[in-house]
Nucleic acid binder design. Structure first.
Lengths: 342, 342
DNA sequence: CGTATATATGGGAGCGTTCCCATGAAGAGG
DNA sequence: CCTCTTCATGGGAACGCTCCCATATATACG
């Protein structure tokens, strides 16, 4: 049987109140009493019961993370897994414990679950449906959203600057002198993918390059297969562009594999660019030029903002946007040696 | 303020005992009373407080997962992330919630944390030090270990059949007719890596091929860089083998990149084989021949066995071993067209 | 009709804490 | 010497549930 403060009290020869003061660290305790209590906790191998504590103190120091995963498991996901890692690390530093919940159909089921467990706050990742968001707004539990798809101004929302990221990708292509360009665009109901495409097209348009519809492949998912298949289809129709931009790295890597399989040289015959800078982008063959999204910063910031919220700080910015960063590797020409200067 | 059973009782016009019976679903309740209670819970948007329940029922339906990560974050890890995914999914199906804890230095700190939170059981992943294992054995909390390094017969331990996996890798190389072989071996204090190497060598030895020390590269970590660097070093010394076996996929993929960079053709000039079958093994360029480790099965089994343990079932096998599976892709010749038959 | 059994309900103790309040002792200031 | 803080300690209520026990009514059986 686990020892309780009563047991400690008895051994140490003090009251349970004194024990409580020593454990929780507030209130007056004489050095001798403290010493006796501490010794008793050693002897009995005492661990305070967080459940009982939470019961009366009304907070658990537990945070729930809900991740929506439609097509892919979550932890091993190169993008969401990174965010999760960062959340885990930051939370540990701040003495929060993390409940990870990843329902395939985000019903209110997993939400209820977490609510019943009395988490102090919630981090919602990726696009959850509006009912669920309303559901949480209705509850009195603080939450922040990461990389979601809501325009709701009442929801604290951390996002990547995908629009600008798309522009940066186009900038790089222009600097390299690519003019014949194709895009593999992920699901357009997904905020990130649609903004990346929008930014990319806008920047090209400014330079007088307008993408025709058949130069854009709208993919149903955002996975490897999409990029892979697109290249093979294009090749059959014998209309290979000079460069391909995919709205995430996975699809770009799929494109790379397809190109290599058919004997194409990258970037000489065709250049490929992705988005996100997942770990594997540096390890692909050739290594992938990409726009880095702020995965770790978003995770860290999510925990920090949630902590503020939990502490009752209400005047937080409703929206935090993280800048993207161009990472040039071997799947495109470096822009200093760009074609159009040759 | 959150509603409690007392509030429900008042609204429904019954006692709190009756409410409790309806909520927890055991004991006699008349249909009318049940109906009234259910309606009241709707009205007040009542959620039972799992803390209070756990307090008296002595179990939380929470499971803690502790992952040791020395060199790499955990969730996004292609191997451990997969196990975690599987744990998450299985746990959700069984109505367990998961606490994920990933301390860099596995002190008893994160352990204490979880113990205080009163998890019903623990899943320990990767090699934890012996003190920590003893620590848990001392506590009365049930736990299972996944892919660890302990020989302790009292510890329930789920492992991959790495020895045989190593043999399978060698088998494939032999069938392909490769005779000049090099190995990139991960940390030898890691059970998996050392067994993979052992099995591989043993099988080769049976066919009269003995690996010299300079044909084996003992890597300090098990990452991309190790494989990458090894190839470049070998190349400088101008002693490229016909085939390279790496004790995990990451290192194999590093080797692939280095070979490609220097203009080597895979598998024509040199074949490469990995171990684990991480997601990116299929997406690498060329796609990677590998031995698949039972990541998902281990995760699922861990939860299921832990559940048994929690329910008090004591006669479980102390050791579960999962078989490996050869996955032939493009980085080696398929053995039916193997060289030695030409 | 009396006794046993199934059905239904309410009250109270208890889970392990924290927090509030009461009570003292000791030292400071007049 | 008396009063007012500061320090120190103990007791009891409360957090929101479940579980046990007591009680009541209905049904069954001889």
């Amino acid at each position: 049987m686990k020892a309780t403060i009563h047991d400690i009290a008895k051994i140490a020869g003090v009251s349970k109140s004194t024990v409580s003061r020593v454990i929780s660290g507030n209130g007056y305790v004489s050095p001798e009493a403290r010493e006796k209590v501490l010794r008793a906790t050693e002897v009995l191998n005492y661990r305070p019961n967080a459940l009982a504590r939470a019961m009366v103190s009304r907070h658990t120091r537990n945070i729930g993370v809900i991740i929506y995963r439609q097509h892919y498991p979550i932890a091993s996901h190169p993008f969401y897994g990174k965010i999760l890692d960062s959340i885990l690390e930051t939370a540990a530093q701040m003495d929060y414990s993390i409940f990870v919940s990843t329902d395939q159909e985000i019903s209110s089921r997993s939400a209820d679950f977490l609510l019943e467990k009395r988490v102090d706050g919630l981090i919602l990742i990726s696009r959850l449906n509006h009912e669920l968001i309303d559901y949480f707004k209705g509850s009195d539990i603080p939450f922040v959203m990461v990389n979601g798809s809501t325009d709701d101004q009442d929801v604290i929302h951390l996002v990547n600057d995908d629009l600008n990221g798309g522009r940066m990708a186009a900038d790089h292509f222009l600097a390299c002198g690519y003019r014949s360009i194709a895009v593999i665009a992920g699901p357009q109901d997904h905020r990130s993918h649609s903004l990346r495409l929008r930014g990319f097209r806008a920047r090209l348009a400014e330079s007088g390059i307008h993408l025709a519809d058949r130069q854009i492949c709208y993919a149903a998912t955002s996975q490897f297969q999409e990029g892979y298949q697109f290249v093979h289809t294009m090749r059959k129709e014998a209309q290979m562009p000079e460069a391909i931009f995919a709205t995430n790295d996975m699809m770009a890597i799929g494109a790379i594999q397809a190109i290599s399989e058919t004997g194409g040289r990258i970037p000489t015959d065709i250049a490929v660019m992705g988005f996100d800078d997942i770990d594997f982008a540096a390890m692909s063959n050739p290594s992938l030029t990409t726009v880095k999204s702020a995965k770790s910063q978003m995770g860290r910031q999510a925990v920090e903002m949630l902590d503020q919220l939990i502490q009752g700080n209400t005047d937080l910015p409703k929206r935090a946007q993280f800048s993207a960063e161009l990472i040039v590797r071997s799947s495109t020409h470096s822009s200093s040696l760009s074609n159009h200067k040759e």
